[in-house]
Amino acid sequence: MKTIAIIPARGGSKRLPEKNIQFLGELPLLVHSILYAQENKDIIDEVYVSTDNLDIKKIALQFDAKVIDRPDSISGDLEPTVTALKHVLESIESNVGNVVLLQATNPFRPKELLKDAFKMFKDNNFDSLFTVSRNHQKFGKIKNNRFEPFNYAIGQRSQDLEPLFSENGLLYITKADLIHENIIISENAFPFEVNHIFAQVDIDNPDDLDYARYLYHKK
């Protein structure tokens, strides 16, 4: 059974217009994820871009990705990502066993990340896997104009905090059967830890893009 990569990239974006085709270095944002998938041909059999936008479609085809035209009915701001993934699976004839979700807004990934994550996924027969990063910040809530610590006690050293982790969006691996059930991250999903500066890049607004461009030229 095949393992395919799906890159959802709709046209609408309010905080950063035309987000998925903004240039990052010499390439549109979307293309960084397409090339990453293509560099892992030993794992990924086919690369699909799901989009409702003609300009995105042209760019994806230019870089040899397959394009699935996403209907307007599942392209709204509030539509969950899994809907696009499920639509791709329902639109192709390939016998797909696993889906690798690559978000265009997370363009930087450590070179060996997919190789290492996929080996963990296969060796342990997980039904899904997603990347997380450890957070070393001191979090709290503000109630009635007072700050209430959430994950620490006032005066506690940062290095003594109980570890907290966040979903960083670098990649997701899920069995296709789960996608058909509208699930990307299952209850038993394995959290694959990635503590790398690339995990801090998630482009949703102009400041995020500026930071990504800074890292691109720096790294």
Rank of each mutant, 00 (worst) to 15 (best):
L61V: 09
E148Y: 12
F150E: 15
K66I: 03
L129A: 12
Q103R: 14
G140E: 10
R146M: 13
L101A: 09
S91G: 07
Q156S: 05
R157L: 15
D64W: 03
A65D: 09
L85R: 02
F118D: 12
N124S: 05
K57D: 11
K66T: 04
F139C: 11
L170W: 06
D64G: 02
L114M: 03
L85N: 00
K58S: 03
I59Q: 01
T174L: 04
I59G: 02
N151W: 01
M120W: 11
N151A: 06
L129P: 11
V82Y: 03
G169V: 01
D69T: 10
K86W: 01
A117L: 08
G155P: 03
A65G: 07
A153W: 10
L85H: 03
K143L: 14
A84K: 10
F139V: 13
K66P: 09
D72M: 02
S133L: 01
H136G: 08
E187K: 14
P110L: 10
G155L: 06
F150S: 13
L85K: 07
I179H: 05
K57G: 07
R157I: 11
K66N: 13
L171S: 05
L89P: 04
E167T: 09
F121H: 08
G140N: 12
N144I: 13
N145S: 13
S94L: 13
N98V: 12
L114R: 06
R70H: 05
T81P: 05
M120C: 14
T105Y: 07
P110G: 11
L101D: 11
V99L: 08
K141F: 15
D160Y: 06
L102M: 06
G76M: 03
M120V: 15
N125H: 05
S128L: 01
